[in-house]
Nucleic acid binder design. Structure first.
Length: 348
DNA sequence: ACCGTCACGGTTGAC
DNA sequence: ACGTCAACCGTGACG
């Protein structure tokens, strides 16, 4: 365990190498872009490298999600017992069948879809290792994955899944996420399972409050602590991931502020609130109006002042500059539905 | 000056 | 328990 309290980039922002920016910042980037602010300005204001801003915006533009991808882990196996069984049947039915033919049949029979169909080489390997001796019982990862869960779409499950509800202790799950994210297609929505308002989603207050997110010495809390916090932050209003409400412990005072992370509790490093970043400036609202920002189509208020830039910031939307951002496109329905949140305007 | 892209060094989590 | 691997991360530099 390396002690990573964050590094400071050229812009003075704090980041943790290898770790995603906090969702609050990510969301802010998208918000600002939607306001027509240029990426370079966003970069400067939030002190995030422009490459990162570009990447996040591009991702948002493409997927509608602000959330980072799933870090670590392995792709779910495509050679599920069901697939192996089918391959076996094909092979038994036609011992001379080619792997590519099997592949086609898997697709044709609906055993797999194009996203999870094994490669020809995988099929060959299965034929060789598991079905080479047809009298041999298929032993697929005996012990685990007993329940039939065929055709797990990598797309919708893997990158955008969220670990299942935790025990109140926040202990790590040892069992596989039994309940896949709702929906089964294109993963536009990662199902950020929160019903927070944007201001809550931003989690800025607590997030930016050093006392809230850092330890007594100003260090960020341990990841495990964040993990439990984040998990508690899921109200499961959408029933996403089948979160069991009863398993959620709302006792954390951070629970309504800390944004959930896409896949890992360790996503939310407290270090981002580090002083060098100056995301926070007490009392300063970059938004000159001082009013909360009603988001088009969502009716929610964005307390944008919470993320602060110490830099002088050109006013949000200048009339003489037409908003260059593709994010201005209405198709993403502003921020109410970004990140697949479908954020209801529950709390004012 | 701005922005897209990519190498890099890093983290993460399934296997 | 540990190592490997392949995913992802943001930064910084380049064009």
């Amino acid at each position: 365990m390396k002690q990573t309290y964050g590094e400071v980039n050229q812009l003075g922002g704090v980041f943790v190498n290898g770790r995603p920016l906090p969702n609050a910042i990510r969301l802010r980037i998208v918000e600002l872009a939607q306001l027509g602010i240029r990426p370079c300005d966003i970069s400067r204001q939030l002190r995030v490298s422009h490459g990162c801003v570009s990447k996040i915006l591009a991702r948002y533009n493409e997927t509608g999600s602000i959330l980072p991808g799933a870090i670590g882990g392995s792709k779910p196996r495509v050679t599920t017992p069901n697939v192996v069984k089918s391959i076996r049947e094909y092979k038994q039915g036609d011992p001379g069948i080619f792997a590519w033919e099997i592949r086609d049949r898997l697709l044709a029979d609906g055993v797999c879809d194009k996203y999870n169909v094994p490669s020809v080489s995988s099929i060959s390997r299965i034929l060789r290792n598991k079905i080479g001796n047809l009298s041999q019982p298929v032993q697929y990862e005996s012990g685990k994955q007993a329940q039939p869960q065929p055709s797990i779409s990598y797309n919708h499950l893997y990158p955008y899944s969220y670990p299942n509800a935790m025990s109140p202790s926040g202990a790590k799950m040892s069992s596989p996420p039994g309940v896949p994210v709702t929906g089964g297609h294109v993963s536009i929505s990662r199902g950020w399972p929160s019903a927070h308002t944007v201001s809550n989603i931003l989690g800025i207050r607590a997030f930016m409050d050093p006392t809230a997110v850092t330890g007594p010495e100003g260090y960020p809390p341990k990841l495990e602590d964040w993990g439990s916090v984040n998990r508690a932050a899921f109200p499961s209003a959408h029933g996403v991931n089948g979160l069991d409400k009863s398993s959620l412990d709302p006792s954390s005072t951070l629970s309504s502020y800390v944004p959930p992370c896409a896949y890992s509790p360790s996503n939310q490093y407290g270090v981002y609130s580090g002083p060098a970043g100056s995301y926070v400036g007490p009392g300063h609202h970059w938004q000159a109006q001082g009013t909360s920002l009603p988001h088009p189509g969502s009716g929610m208020a964005i307390h944008s002042g919470d993320i602060h830039s110490s830099m002088p910031f050109k006013h949000a939307v200048r009339d003489d500059r037409k908003p260059p951002s593709p994010l201005s496109k209405p198709q993403h329905q502003a921020l109410s539905s970004i990140h697949g949140l479908g954020v209801p305007t529950s709390s004012s």
